[in-house]
Simulated assay, not measured.
Amino acid sequence: MTRWLVISDNHGDRDILVSLKAALKPDTIFHCGDSEMTADDPWFKDAYVVQGNMDFDSQLPLVQTPTVDGCKVLLTHGHYDEVHWDLTKLKLHADQEQADLVFFGHTHELAAQEAGGHVFVNPGSISQPRGEYRQLGGTCALITVTPTAWVVQYYTRDAQPVPDLKFTFTRNQKG
């Protein structure tokens, strides 16, 4: 069992990244872009990170597709996949990459859903939330990876779990 921190759209608020990493102690970190930090920032050491539409360091990749703990992940900000409209282009991108999980940001609205054989997770914006859960003041997702499931638990800026925002997805067992 491992724990993955999925975070996005901190928009220059580096301190919140430091705080959540210390509090949640994840095994792996995925940053979905719009950090407004440089690619060589020490916080990104041993993290998977992509460039968002507000990131201007060209050393940040637009997409990453690592396999972590036996799970293929598509990590992207989402702006090139037009996630403000719907997940159609992102799902096609996930199909192309044969991703199990898709982590994206850009909309500043949290979301967790399964569609077309992929689990899509938007952690929401940790610093500038929008939508139904904006009153939480910012969210990130901590995913517990087990041999049979991905458990997505949303957390607030003060590293507190949001009880109503916990979702379990069954892992596809590849044989």
Rank of each mutant, 00 (worst) to 15 (best):
Y155V: 02
D86K: 07
L17I: 10
L62Y: 07
Q96I: 11
H11K: 07
N10Q: 08
E114L: 01
L75R: 00
P123A: 07
L136A: 04
A115K: 02
V102P: 06
T148D: 15
V63R: 08
Y80K: 06
R157W: 04
D13T: 03
G131N: 03
L110E: 12
P161I: 00
V73M: 14
T38F: 12
E36K: 11
K166M: 00
L136P: 11
V119M: 04
Q98A: 12
R14P: 14
V18G: 10
T2G: 07
L136T: 05
D86L: 03
R14Y: 13
P147A: 06
R130E: 15
Y48I: 09
D55W: 11
A99W: 06
G131D: 12
K72Q: 10
T156I: 12
N10H: 10
Q64Y: 01
D41P: 03
D55F: 12
G124R: 03
A39C: 12
T148F: 09
W85P: 00
T65G: 13
H108D: 15
T28W: 15
G124L: 11
N10S: 14
T156G: 08
V68A: 08
G70E: 07
V63S: 04
G137M: 14
D100T: 02
V145P: 05
H77V: 05
H84W: 11
E109V: 04
E109W: 01
L165Q: 01
G137P: 06
Q64T: 10
L17E: 04
H77F: 04
E132D: 08
V145W: 09
L24W: 01
M37V: 03
F167V: 02
F103Q: 00
E132N: 05
